[in-house]
Amino acid sequence: MAIYIAREATKLWRKVCAETSVELQLLFEKWHLLLAGIVFQYIHGLAARGVHYLHRPGPILQDMGFMALPELGQDKGYLSETVFTSIFLSFLLWSFHPFVYHSKRFYTVLLWRRVLAFLVASQFLRIITFYSTQLPGPNYHCREGSKLATLPPPKNVREVLLINFPRGVLFGCGDLIFSSHMIFTLVFVRTYHKYGSKRLIKLFAWLMAIIQSLLIIASRKHYTVDVVVAWYTVNLVVFFVDKNLPEMLDRTSGLALLPVSAKDKSDRMKEELHKPEKDNKIKDEHHKLLNGNTVDSTDRRQWMPMNGKHGEDMNHTLSDAAPNGT
């Protein structure tokens, strides 16, 4: 038993090392776009921190979702965060599963490149909308009487740039339309819906997205309009951005590694160009074999089926057929 476990552990380690080597090659080529997407996450947090300085508490706006859903209360606000964290961590682990499992439908680097593109486009639109009009926040720490509802003027630039992570993110105000939690949730769910393989998990992921939406409204972290706008905006953004990005190769087709250099790409293109010619040649040779011809094109002799007769019978037949006097 111990020998079997050790053997399987060795196979797993080799698999992880091989996959890491492949992904690192892709990372060395695509790191510019990945770094830009990660940097924009900080810019988005900085913008949310900046709008908090502009936020002014006021009466909570009339909201149909607040009327329909009972208020969870300040002590149960963790429920929506718990669901969001589970969605985030589940997607993160799934995106790295090609390092371990055989069913490899995508490359992790290329997948996160697409995910960051979706996030950046959605967050860019979000920054524009919540800076256009500042609404009084419905969250408990954003209401009138709370010390966190309005931030005092910053004493220096460093105070703004550090964005007081993670407290500044958890207790922000003013960045309402549209919900950042729903951006991440919908991007992750749509990505798994396209590249995931388990239909039941896909249905469960969409159910979790709906539950997340309801919990955000019930915990009064966002107005209903923030969630509704996120649903159609993020889905439209993902649709149009994904349509204009080059499609990822499906790894189930048997390709071991994407071409990451100009030489590899050139070789791959040459191989694809000569593929029809090679296939036709193979078909011709196969056709000759089926018809009883030799594969060698210089050998024009026809192979005569013997139909179960002995070689002596064939020799007698050939001698009888020869002309007299020879």
Rank of each mutant, 00 (worst) to 15 (best):
G172R: 05
C142N: 05
K147I: 06
G137H: 03
N156C: 10
T150P: 02
P154K: 15
N156W: 10
I163G: 00
P166F: 11
I177F: 14
F184K: 12
H181W: 07
S179P: 04
P154I: 11
C142I: 02
T150I: 08
P166T: 13
C173F: 04
K155H: 01
N164T: 04
C142R: 07
P136G: 11
T185Y: 03
T185R: 00
L135M: 09
G145I: 08
I163C: 06
P154A: 09
L162E: 12
G137N: 06
S180N: 12
F130G: 11
F171T: 01
N139D: 09
T129H: 06
L135K: 13
F178D: 03
P154H: 15
G137C: 04
P138N: 07
M182P: 00
T185C: 15
K147T: 10
E159D: 08
G174M: 09
T150F: 01
E159F: 09
P154L: 10
A149N: 02
F130A: 11
T185F: 04
I183K: 05
G172M: 01
L176C: 04
N139R: 13
P152F: 00
G168D: 00
D175K: 06
E159H: 01
F184C: 03
Y131M: 13
T150D: 06
L170N: 10
P166D: 09
C142Q: 07
T133H: 15
F171R: 00
R143Q: 11
Q134V: 15
K155V: 06
M182G: 02
L148E: 15
L161C: 10
L162M: 12
H141Q: 10
R158A: 13
N164W: 07
R167E: 15
L135W: 12
V160Y: 13
H141C: 00
P138V: 05
S180C: 11
I177C: 12
T129S: 07
P152I: 05
I183D: 05
F165H: 08
V169P: 00
L161M: 12
T150N: 12
V169Y: 15
S132Y: 15
E159W: 09
S132I: 07
P154E: 11
H181T: 03
E159R: 14
I183A: 01
T185D: 03
C142P: 01
G145D: 07
P166R: 12
K147Q: 08
L151T: 02
H141G: 09
Y131L: 12
P136N: 08
G172K: 05
V157E: 06
S146D: 03
I177V: 14
L186M: 12
V160D: 08
F184R: 02
T129D: 03
C173N: 04
T150W: 11
I163M: 13
V157I: 14
L162V: 08
N156D: 12
T150R: 14
G145A: 13
A149S: 08
V160W: 14
F171I: 01
L148N: 14
T129M: 11
S179I: 02
S180Y: 06
A149Y: 10
L186P: 08
